[in-house]
Design a protein around this nucleic acid. Sequence first.
DNA 1: CATTTTTGTCATATTGTTGCCATAATTCAC
DNA 2: GTGAATTATGGCAACAATATGACAAAAATG
Lengths: 224, 224
Amino acid sequence: MHKILIVEDEPAISRIVEKYLIQSNYECTIASDGFIALELFSKNSYDLILLDVMMPGIDGFKVLETIRETSDLPVIMLTARELEEDRLSGFTKGADDYVIKPFSPLELVKRVDVFIKRIYGSNEISIRNYGPFVLDDKEKTMRKNNEIIDLTSAEYLVISVLLEHKNQILTRNQIIETAFSLDYEGYDRTIDTYIKRIRSKIEDDPKKPKYLQTKYGAGYVFII
Amino acid sequence: MHKILIVEDEPAISRIVEKYLIQSNYECTIASDGFIALELFSKNSYDLILLDVMMPGIDGFKVLETIRETSDLPVIMLTARELEEDRLSGFTKGADDYVIKPFSPLELVKRVDVFIKRIYGSNEISIRNYGPFVLDDKEKTMRKNNEIIDLTSAEYLVISVLLEHKNQILTRNQIIETAFSLDYEGYDRTIDTYIKRIRSKIEDDPKKPKYLQTKYGAGYVFII
DNA sequence: CATTTTTGTCATATTGTTGCCATAATTCAC
DNA sequence: GTGAATTATGGCAACAATATGACAAAAATG
């Protein structure tokens, strides 16, 4: 099931959209302003974002801009008819599609379907987005900014766990138990070696890791 | 797969257009100005050109004029709304269609689809292009940079499957089942031998395969 | 039918992965 | 700063998977 983040300040609209998307088998989260949206975005992983342009506080464009700093996630903008220039504006700033209000919920769902199908394929979810990193569980491949990162299968398991709990500190044992197995008999410091190897593949400067950071005395975090 | 040349100076726009076209199974090349566009045009072969009118340096009309000296390739112009006369201008100078900015990427793709289908679509596809590799299913021949590569029929089947799923890891059994038959009774490691033989024919250095790569513990991928 | 080419299997050589360790470097608390 | 604790790193051995060359059976060729 694919996860959609709905960013919309009018509950009347977001509720309806949510209802339709749920009927179409999507999992929805509603953010009522840009701030909450960015907060949710940084902590969770979504497959598509519906983003209202006109919002109090941070507007849709600002939100999109921030999202685009780290992610290529598909974003559909919801714009008012009056703001015809929004179209261009939205595009030049990186939106993938736009829908003009007032829109038919069915139409919106159809657009979402098309996107999800095109990008993730109609089948089971196998692709996960984390900022510049994209994991394909079916292929067991990872990309950073669209470049394939060549990982061994054990490395893939480790980074997969770290990304699943991005921005959360995981102890070596948590990593081992989740990535490998609960009854893994090995030495927990072996994780250090995996971290070393993964860093050398994903970090620009493995000496000063930007993503895969150490928490002294605790474990490791994937910051994104 | 048909090749599209996108001539557009704003990366924000060309990137989105490219993304959509790739999703619709087109192969895209982006030229960020008229100069590069003409350079690429003279060195490669495309099936359709998307041409922005407003560009620094040589503008779209000039580019179109030059292209028309030697080619009848379909060209779709991308024009700004303000320049309404561009329409006429564009037509009189030989454009095949035009799209007014701001445009919906989905709409643009639809237009491209219509064109490609009208012009190239009626004939059967027996020729498949994958970068420097061209397969002719009718002739059962493969070319690399226009040079015929002499393959046996089993080798052709294997590479055909790999290219059909280029950039996807295929297990030995997937290759066997797709290339040969579902009830193939043989030993799956026989695929290794085919890979060896194909590599010796298509790779510059079979020891360090650039195209037909091994995924340790998984299978093989054709990277292109 | 004889000859050549293709196909599939196998044994062996080579390469890649994994987990561990010893030692170096870093971090933290005092 | 200093020392103790913790992490980083390079290397290595055991193991697992792949690459390769040789060969015989099967097909194709003429």
